[in-house]
Amino acid sequence: MAKVKGAIKVDVEKCKGCSLCVVVCPSKVIALAKEVNGKGYNYAYMANPEECTGCTNCAMVCPDSVIDVYRVKAQVGA
């Protein structure tokens, strides 16, 4: 049985911490960092990476196009 695994990469310096990705993530993967970037924004990051399925919801609603989404099909038990 194949399980879909995903991950996101956030362009931290361009993220404005708007949270729109946080609320659309069906797996509650994303949170805003306690740290801030160069512009003073609490940027988005994968707080819960194991749950990411690479569904692209976060990237799709990101107004600043700062999220790249990756996805693999991992074999369970392999």
């Binding site: 799709m60 107004p63 790249d68």
Partner: peptide
């Protein structure tokens, strides 16, 4: 292992420049 070029499924359009958008957060 996941974040590799061959696994990329969504990224910024090449028609967008690298400039940081001047719009407010969430716009």
């Amino acid at each position: 292992e996941i974040i590799k070029e061959e696994n990329l499924v969504y990224s910024k359009s090449k028609i967008l420049t690298d400039n940081i958008m001047s719009y407010c957060p969430g716009c």
